[in-house]
Design a protein around this nucleic acid. Sequence first.
DNA 1: TTATCATATGAATATAGATTCATATGAAAG
DNA 2: CTTTCATATGAATCTATATTCATATGATAA
Lengths: 114, 114
Amino acid sequence: MAHKHDHSQVISRVSAELPSDELLCDLGDLFKLFGDTTRIKILYSLFESELCVCAIAELLKMEQSAISHQLKILKDAKLVGSRRSGRLNMYYLADDHVRTIIGQGFEHLTEEEE
Amino acid sequence: MAHKHDHSQVISRVSAELPSDELLCDLGDLFKLFGDTTRIKILYSLFESELCVCAIAELLKMEQSAISHQLKILKDAKLVGSRRSGRLNMYYLADDHVRTIIGQGFEHLTEEEE
DNA sequence: TTATCATATGAATATAGATTCATATGAAAG
DNA sequence: CTTTCATATGAATCTATATTCATATGATAA
């Protein structure tokens, strides 16, 4: 017993409305994907057109390896897809929610200036 | 020079459309806030009603200290606010974008089952 | 004013995750 | 088939950050 007050009513009410632990974890994992500058930049770059790994690396002035690692994470999460084109590996946005979610974040930031 | 192909055209085109580095960082930082299960749970709990720290701690079965630390992060980011009520410190959602953003993530997850 | 309750907070720890380095893989050109 | 180019990947490193522990703070009740 840590406290004098009895919160059991509020707790059971709120608890009932809370999604499952698994879903809440998945939500966290999803947003974690957007919670990294490199990944945000990659996704944003793909808004315009598909790009190969080395183009992204040049664009972001980062090592090819770092980009590949992040692309793998994004691909595992099915936010991006890839296809071969000759020697290049072209990556593209695989999910339109990406645009919506990033767009919402964008709005939040730009509407914020008090 | 790392590659034979010349991506300069694509790069300058995409580069021109890319938001500033600062904004992209802010975007990452924003999503980082949602990228943690504990914070997601806290925010979700506050969808229903304002809650005091100890109620949140009980609800999530976590230590009061851990909750306080996370609440501080959320408050610094102005996603939640707080007010005194007797001995309790009540926290509430301070930004409606929170609902929208989490809602979008939710949709993404629930629409995903192929 | 003192004791108590609710919360905040600094330091320490533990863990996750991003980047780099070296190298493997795999397709295509010669 | 060999070489080269583009990418992928495992291991190591380094940094960020979530949680815990101990304790400080600050308001209220006695």
